[in-house]
């Protein structure tokens, strides 16, 4: 009898890239449900346009580079990019901005560097940052979430999302329905010399444990993230470090000056905190390599996000924090090479 003589090992765990990506998408589901329940179905519209654009852009880029598109499309990584971008942008964004952002994310964020595994920056955050800088007004207009008291109904939100998606002028008909995010409102309020307790007392910014609307999304993202950690698809280092880097300074600052500094709970449950900690910062391609490096990398993201939230010009600094730390990755990797067994340190 003849047998094939392939090299060892003869077994593999079988956690393939597509499966990993699928698990990530699955873990995003709770956050997606919360998002749709609180901000209307805009997310679904954004998701569909982002996914279609991402697949098209990926296929086109691979064509240009003369590669076979099929396996790359099936690996699912481009869908994760699309999902993360769709979760980050406001659900009212006109479809063409979503499409533009996704195309830029895939082309500029990924393929100019050589495709999967080669990109130094998180592609979704590249797309997001470009949109935020180029279209600040559109990118900061969110629906007022369902858990803020008012007479709005979800079906009204749905109609508004659809109108926004088609690019209609929202101010004319749905004036009271849109607004800034909680972090944005707090920043503006502090700028007008209100104190933090005064702002929170208004009740339309934050609820019992976090920002209106975003608190639930963050909670759901945390649940999904913990699922990923428990399945060992994401290792704990980056999320823990991101949260540590963000929450420890905010805890100290809040202790020193509760009048203006956001406390750790509010920080943790507003904006894109959990999404960043568990889904965005953990993108392996653009993260640091070793476990120790990943702790530094995550802590850097948390800290920079805190700095931008506290003193910066943007309400939520997560995207920039991720991009800045992406930039620092080669440096971190250089200094956190693990010690090889049997060698002197």
């Amino acid at each position: 009898m003849r047998f094939d003589t392939s090299p060892a090992p003869h077994v593999i765990a079988g956690y393939t890239v597509p499966r990993v990506m699928f698990q990530v998408l699955l873990a995003l589901a709770p956050a997606g449900i919360a998002h749709v329940a609180l901000f209307g179905p805009g997310l679904l519209l954004q998701l569909s346009v982002a996914c279609v654009t991402a697949l098209l852009a990926e296929a086109a880029a691979l064509r240009w580079r003369g590669r076979d598109a099929a396996p790359a499309l099936r690996d699912g990584s481009v869908l994760v990019t699309a999902f993360l971008l769709a979760f980050s942008i406001p659900p009212l964004l006109p479809w063409w901005l979503g499409a533009l952002g996704t195309a830029l994310a895939v082309l500029l964020g990924k393929h100019v560097f050589g495709g999967l595994g080669q990109n130094p920056f998180n592609p979704a955050m590249v797309g997001y940052a470009i949109l935020l800088v180029a279209f600040p007004a559109e990118m900061t207009r969110w629906p007022v979430p369902m858990d803020v008291d008012g007479t709005r109904t979800w079906s009204e939100l749905a109609r508004m999302s659809f109108a926004g998606f088609c690019g209609a002028d929202l101010a004319a008909r749905w004036d009271g329905y849109t607004g800034a995010t909680a972090l944005d409102s707090i920043r503006n309020g502090l700028g007008l010399r209100y104190t933090l307790p005064e702002l929170l007392a208004r009740g339309d910014i934050a609820g019992t444990f976090g920002a209106r609307g975003f608190a639930w999304i963050n909670l759901a993202a945390l649940a999904g993230g913990l699922y990923l950690v428990s399945r060992r698809i994401v290792r704990w280092h980056i999320p823990v470090a991101v949260l540590g880097g963000l929450l420890v300074p905010s805890f100290i600052a809040h202790g020193l000056d509760p009048g203006i500094a956001l406390g750790p709970t509010l920080q943790a449950f507003s904006g894109a905190t959990m999404l960043t900690a568990f889904f965005i910062a953990t993108d392996p391609v653009s993260a640091a390599t070793s476990d120790r490096g990943r702790l530094w990398y995550g802590a850097g993201i948390g800290l920079i996000a805190w700095i931008i939230r506290t003193w910066g010009g943007y309400p939520d600094g997560c995207a920039f924090a991720v991009l800045l730390m992406n930039l620092a990755v080669p440096f971190i990797d250089r200094y956190t090479v693990p010690r090889i067994y049997g060698r002197q340190p």
């Binding site: 392939s6 090992p9 003869h10 077994v11 593999i12 393939t16 890239v17 990993v20 396996p71 690996d75 990584s77 495709g115 999967l116 595994g117 080669q118 290792r235 392996p284 391609v285 993260a287 390599t289 070793s290 476990d291 990943r294």
Partner: peptide
């Protein structure tokens, strides 16, 4: 292993 399709390294660590 038999069905494995090699993809680029995603640096997952």
């Amino acid at each position: 292993r038999l069905g494995a399709v090699e993809l680029p390294c995603i640096r997952c660590g």
